[in-house]
Amino acid sequence: MTEFLESVRLNPALQYALIAGIIACVPFGVVGSFLVVRRIGYIAAAIAHSILGGIGAAIYFSRSYEAMAWFTPLLGATLAALLSALLIGFVSLRFREREDTLIGAIWATGMAAGLLFLHKAPGTGVSLESFLFGDILLTSRSDVWVTAIASALILLVVVLFYPRLIAVCFDPEFSDLRGVSSTRYYLLLLVLTAIAMVLLVRLAGIVLSLALLILPAATAARVFQRMTPIILGASFLSFAYLLVCFPLSYHQDLPTGPVIVVAASLVYGLTLLVTRRRGA
């Protein structure tokens, strides 16, 4: 442990990754919990995969055209995530029977477009692996800021609209009757999901992002009976996994993301065994 702390002290990237991770625990807990209780984790997965398309486009255009230097990977990722979230939301509300097709299409097309853009992007090759699995050693000071601002935004929105979000997840028809548009708040939830996925993909990569969002929330949803404790439980679990697995992975020379996912899966599996209750 002392060895780990010493490395953190000497390595700014580790510091940034740890700080960004700690900040993001609560918004991830919030978004993950809504995804679990509304059972739309697969939408978040499609959003995560579409992000590669956005990153690829940003790298390609900013390197190919000087006038487009402003098109950063973060901007590309955010645009791709928001676009796919709104598209899936719109289709799932209007044409429910086509939802799974669209999700599959966005999932694969996002990856394909990203691979094509990256293949054709001028300049030195880009490490695809760091996008897919994340590389915390690439975390920078700006990542901490982006994480802090986006986390604050997610929390602010959820605090302001909390009962409405609960209402539209529980009984959309009744919400509409009370003048609270279920369409609008469902799309808002997907937009928050998109923002969380952009952060998570930056920190943990595309492949592992969904598990990191869903597993702590799914575990908490087995234990608690209300949204607020589920959210707090999910946030606490994310925090605990980070605090335990980060030093462990460093010590054993293992990649952090997969260590956290395996730990979170084990805890979820144990919780399933212990709490044999219906629901969640």
Binding site: F170, D171, R178, R226
Partner: peptide, 17 residues
């Protein structure tokens, strides 16, 4: 199966635009 208590559900009836 939504995780809410009885009071949560009843209070949602007071929701207004």
């Amino acid at each position: 199966h939504f995780p809410v208590t009885v009071a949560d559900v009843v209070l949602l009836g007071a929701l207004e635009k």
